[in-house]
Design a protein around this nucleic acid. Structure first.
Length: 511
RNA sequence: GGCCCGUUCGUCUAGGGGUUAGGACGCGUCCCUUUCACGGACGAAACACGGGUUCGAUUCCCGUACGGGCUACCA
């Protein structure tokens, strides 16, 4: 057990797009597996056929790929020794039923024939009686329709008649259940708080509770890492392992703190007021006809996204915040995972992206930007686009801001910043720019150093302070009051374009 | 309601019986700069509360408050 090979799984259910909370769970699993040279498995928990959403599974796979959190075994990533990895397919193996029947045979589970209405009636009755825990349990099961309360004959009759039934876990009435959680330490719960969980549904499908245990055992999972929302049902899971005689093979548990919404409180929801994405990729829900934007489409980089995510609930123990995936892997441990939930901060998320943006090679950014340019039907050389990226990346937080920031590199200004013009445009400025255009166009060297030198000397020759005409120069060339380093911008634009823009501005601006 | 989990600056967090309680985002001031951004300097900003234990608690224990999760034939 202690020396068991590390095998962890990410086991989402395909009921919708994978949101960032799920991505973080996958990430922690992945990092832990890599750290220990183990396996990371993707298992699809599609036991609820009524909640299946088309495209969700594909989305999960694509999202993990984009994030660089790739399982080495499982749905979408190549079958390993424990295929299939989709529970709906594993059900065909009869595997879940056989485990459930094993529990019935040993007296730790039973058949229950209650209808939805009967269950509802029981709940109402218990609530009316002000029972602290109104649930199907050791007490209430005695007055319900199941094989612990009914005679053998009655059960047989119901069975023969084909009455739908479920198999429920027979939870003892009053017993202390202890289990160890890597992140939280020892947790103790009394079995009176645990209900007789349905293990096998009437459609023959297992519930999560049974299915994940069977699969974790069959797939030799060493650590079950999942969100805190599972903590309350963990005692039931311990009982299932115990009754199966598998308590010694049970995976170690690690319940991750939840990621909370940035505004107010509560679990992360699909949409948030901050306007920031909750999903890694765009997601369109066929059912609800709702679409959600993704980090990728919003201009975030996968590595920045992951970096932001990994620090939600975990830290490397030093003050380092920018971590490569390799660093995350070597530094990761559950000991450094927090217990408390974390609100994620949209501002800091952008800051992370900015840091990564600054460090990206211009060629890579240019490739990204090229897609947008193509959309705009703009033709430009790779070298030119790279130059543009070099200049604008210092000012951007998101790749999606490139067009807004750099459009003037590809099209002439349509208007000139009115504030600057109103404040500084006059006849002496006009004369200055006429001369500047002449001098620049006669220049053999159009490098930014030369441009700046000539700009300044021309200004002083005309008794003008450079600072007075500098803002104007930018406006005449770009139309805007602010932007990247001016002379570098002009150098990149080139002589022909620069002189053309200057003359055009001279022509359009009032005398 | 019941059960479980949690609680250090607004947010993410480090720390841990004796510290000027550290860092980051954001915010403010200043420097750099033609602008914006980057960068740099500085600053405001936290141990939820009440009891213990202790020479000494932010740190350990117990309560309270607050927050979150769960309470389905959903995961």
């Amino acid at each position: 057990m202690e020396n068991k090979r590390v095998r962890v799984r990410f086991a989402p259910s395909p009921t919708g797009g994978l949101h960032m909370g799920g991505v973080r769970t996958a990430l922690f699993n992945y990092l832990f597996a890599k750290k220990h040279g183990g396996d990371f498995i993707l298992r699809i928990e599609d036991t609820d056929q009524t909640r299946y959403v088309n495209g969700a599974e594909e989305y999960i796979v694509n999202a993990l790929k984009w994030c660089g959190i790739e399982p080495n075994e499982g749905v979408g990533f190549g079958n390993g020794p424990h295929a299939p990895y989709r529970q709906s397919e594993r059900k065909e193996l009869g595997i879940y039923r056989s485990y459930a029947e094993r529990l019935v045979a040993s007296g730790h589970a039973y058949y229950a024939f209650d209808t939805a209405e009967e269950l509802e009636a029981m709940r109402k009755r218990l609530e009316a009686a002000k029972v602290a825990a109104p649930q199907y349990n050791a007490v209430s099961r005695q007055s319900m329709k199941n094989s612990t309360a009914l005679s053998e004959d009655e059960v047989k009759k119901l069975m023969d008649a084909g009455t739908p039934y479920v198999i429920r876990l027979k939870v003892p009435r009053n017993e202390e259940i202890r289990f160890h959680d890597i992140i939280r330490g020892w947790v103790v719960v009394n079995s009176s708080q645990v209900d007789d969980k349905v293990l096998l549904k009437s459609d023959g499908m297992p519930t999560y509770h049974l299915a994940h245990i069977v699969d974790d055992i069959e797939m030799k999972i060493s650590h079950a890492v999942r969100g805190e929302e599972w903590l309350p049902s963990a005692p039931a899971h311990v009982l299932i392992y115990r009754y199966l005689g598998l308590e010694n093979e049970m995976p170690q548990l690690a319940h991750l703190p939840l990621i909370l919404r940035p505004d107010g409180q509560g679990k992360l929801s699909k949409r948030d007021k901050s306007g920031l994405p909750m999903f890694p990729l765009n997601w369109y829900d066929e059912r609800t006809k709702e679409s959600y934007i993704g980090y990728r489409e919003s201009g975030f980089f996968a590595d920045a996204f992951i970096n932001m995510l990994v620090l939600l609930g975990w830290n490397p123990g030093n003050n380092q915040e920018l971590l490569s995936k390799e660093e995350m892997i070597s530094l990761f441990s559950f000991e450094r995972v927090n217990k408390a939930g974390a609100k994620f901060d949209p501002e800091k998320t952008k800051w992370f992206n900015q840091q990564y943006l600054k460090n990206k090679p211009n060629a890579e950014l240019a490739d990204l930007f090229a897609v947008k340019l193509k959309e705009k039907q703009i033709v430009a050389t790779q070298t030119y686009v790279e130059g543009v990226c070099r200049l604008i990346k210092e000012k951007a937080h998101l790749a999606s801001e490139f067009w807004e920031l750099g459009a003037f590199f590809f099209q002439e200004p349509e208007k000139y910043d009115e504030v600057v013009i109103a404040k500084r445009w006059n006849s002496s400025a006009r004369n200055f720019f006429i001369k500047l255009a002449e001098i620049w166009s006669a220049s053999e060297n159009f490098s930014h150093a030369v441009l700046e030198e000539k700009f300044k000397s021309t200004a002083s020759e005309n008794g003008i302070k450079p600072g007075e005409v500098m803002p104007l120069l930018r406006v005449l060339i770009t139309g805007l009051a602010g932007g990247p380093a001016l002379f570098e911008t002009i150098e990149l634009l080139g002589m022909a374009q620069t002189i053309h823009r200057l003359q055009r501005a001279l022509h359009e601006l009032p005398e």
